[in-house]
Write a protein that binds this DNA or RNA. Structure first.
Lengths: 155, 155
DNA sequence: CCGTGATTTCAATATTTATTGAAAATTCTG
DNA sequence: CAGAATTTTCAATAAATATTGAAATCACGG
């Protein structure tokens, strides 16, 4: 960590703290925050380790996690043989699709519950029927959001 | 843990495992799962501790968490002086409102980032402008979902 | 295909978080 | 309001997870 500490570094730390609040590891959050404000908008693993004061190993782990979530993508920089990473444009919209996926998982969980309660009285089954009904509705709504964005975009 | 182990207990454990997959504590998940399939649909803390084989302290902690998330509510049972808990009907729909809240938080984070980049070139600011734009859209969509449900319901 | 620099892996460790259980507090009812 | 039953609190412990850093692997340019 050689360069001076700036408001950008603070910003990265705050996004890291925000991540922690959701039970997610702090370092990927700090990297995401840094990639939102760094200059240039793409960075090498070594730059990230240096600027954020974390080990290269941690950066490697974090990049893998961020990549799995489609938050970042590799970018080639002319004149450098190093990997560079930047935020994946459009990433933020993915969360709607992710929610749709989770809703569909809950529909399955509800259905499995209804199997368990196959012989139970209707008033016992109602809890799970309600859950299934609501998640079916939610899945539809979440699935629709991305499409809507691009339609609204065209104007 | 005296009564025999049934498919309902397995179901509770599976919901607990599902919770764990999201980095959430397992016991609240198991309780949620149990409350989806137990008979009757409301249970005392002691029943929960007994059926799931966890300490009363853990049940107390878990109920507090579930209550904070509006997942459960107290219910009075005639002839028993004990507290009883059941799933809060309609709970599943809340997640849309929760997502709306998170989206609004991200809008603020993006705005703070734009302050940090006040003097940065437009191409640097673009990342955050995109994030703000998308979360503004997402917040609107999420906010609309609950309303839609009740409209669609009336038919 | 060798050498060098960049990246990843993974065992060890530090840190955080979940869970227990006994003691304290609370809440009913008689 | 006393006494008993129920619930909550919280310090101790167990369990899980994040982070490091040195060694291994990889990938590129000569």
């Amino acid at each position: 960590m050689s360069g001076e500490r700036t408001a950008r570094h603070d910003y990265a730390d705050e996004i890291g703290a925000y991540f922690e609040g959701f039970g997610l590891p702090r370092i990927p959050g700090r990297i995401l925050g840094w990639l939102l404000v760094c200059e240039p908008p793409h960075q090498s693993p070594e730059q990230l380790a240096e600027e954020l004061g974390v080990s290269r190993g941690s950066v490697s782990m974090a990049m893998r996690m961020l990549q799995r979530n489609n938050a970042v993508e590799r970018v080639t920089v002319p004149g450098s043989r190093r990997t560079h990473w930047r935020l994946r444009p459009g990433f933020w919209l993915d969360e709607a699709a992710e929610k749709a996926k989770q809703a569909r998982e809950w529909i399955k969980q509800a259905e499995r519950g209804l199997d368990v309660l196959a012989d139970a009285p209707p008033e016992s089954r109602r809890r799970l029927e309600e859950a299934k009904e609501m998640y079916t509705f939610l899945a539809e709504q979440y699935e629709h959001i991305e499409t809507l964005w691009y339609e609204q975009r065209k104007k």
